[in-house]
Design a protein around this nucleic acid. Structure first.
Lengths: 197, 197
DNA sequence: CGGGAGATTGATTCCAGTCAAAGGCGGTGG
DNA sequence: CCACCGCCTTTGACTGGAATCAATCTCCCG
């Protein structure tokens, strides 16, 4: 949890509920609120004219999202969509700044969060541009595994091929063919269609 | 200028000089210092096995760079290379934190800087993944123009085709052919090989 | 004038995207 | 228990566009 729930409520945050696939905000909206997930999952993603999707990130219980545009009065670079029933604390820009002022240690927290996002995004760009297809998928898998903390054993990857495609900016068929190669190459396991890494 | 020069020196910053093309740090180095440019230009870039380069960003007089990994004790996601003779203030992590502590308003500054970088990088990823080649180049040109502030008239783009290629993750020949199309299409001007946008 | 870096052009290759058609798998309801 | 349906996965054939390779060409500068 980034900002303490008590504090958020005390400063007037509202708890809003979203259904699966409901949008919390859209790309190009002007950022006016601070959001923090009480419970659920949210993806930030772009969808272009041809309907192709690119997932910038996934956020879960306790995470905040969409702060960067808020801090610089900018438009959202991506839309936020609930991945399941999700409840979110929402508080206006003005009150968010008031919290930062009254509890300055949160500034340190956000510095770290933003720093982490920058590094992560720099790595993503690098992987997407410079590497071959299999590298893209492998670095996605590595990211996932790192988030899980497990580094030793092969673990089940709980994503559909389509989802992996959305994360890596590739197409389903490409992901399938590439995973098959990686499997033959012993870099991933595939059992009954489930991917283990 | 991000942090006042007086303060940097007072806390023991050193002024280091770098020649054109000299590296200030390398990808995967652990971040141990805060850097701020006194005078010059620095690019942050990745170079992969095949020698293909990707430029993550360019920094000039007064800018700081490489802070995100410093703030979270991480490895640099890219190398920093001087683009010309450049002098840089360098100060250790520990002293940098001391400055932040003693002058907390700099935390606000860095929050904004990091937020800006996040938004910028999110937009870059989006453009690279979702858009066609000409969009990539156009959004690079737009970025450049926005940095310059000029929005009205066509201005000279001071980059070689190779540099544009490095920024957009494309190949020289692709950039050349695409610029030609954009020219025919009246989206850019080309005079004596110089690009105006 | 000569040399070199950058720009350009054409021919070819390669690989991800696209399209279309099956193939499995799980869940539901009769 | 089986039939059916919908979602995901898989496969094959084809396409298109960027990368690659290999020559020039141009312009600038000493």
């Amino acid at each position: 949890m980034i900002i303490d729930t008590e504090i958020l409520l005390q400063y007037g945050a509202l708890l809003k509920n979203f259904e699966k696939n409901e949008a919390i905000f859209y790309e190009d909206d002007i950022a006016k609120f601070y959001f923090q997930i009480a419970k659920g999952k949210v993806k930030m993603c772009n969808i272009n004219e041809e309907g192709k999707q690119f997932v910038q990130g996934i956020f879960s219980d306790g995470d905040s999202f969409g702060e960067p545009p808020l801090l610089i009065q900018e438009k959202y670079p991506a839309s936020a969509i609930a991945l399941c029933k999700t409840s979110v604390y929402k508080i206006s820009e003005h009150l968010f700044y008031k919290i930062l002022q009254d509890y300055p240690h949160y500034k340190d927290t956000f510095l770290k969060i933003l720093a982490f996002r920058c590094v992560q995004k720099a790595n993503t760009s690098k992987d997407i541009i410079n590497q071959r297809t299999d590298h893209r998928i492998l670095s996605f898998l590595n990211d996932f595994k790192r988030r899980k903390g497990s580094t030793t054993k092969k673990i089940l990857v709980p994503y559909t091929r389509q989802e992996i495609a959305d994360f890596t900016g590739l197409r389903v068929e490409t992901v399938i063919r590439c995973l098959l190669l990686l499997h033959k190459n012993n870099q991933v396991q595939i059992l009954k269609g489930k991917v283990y890494y």
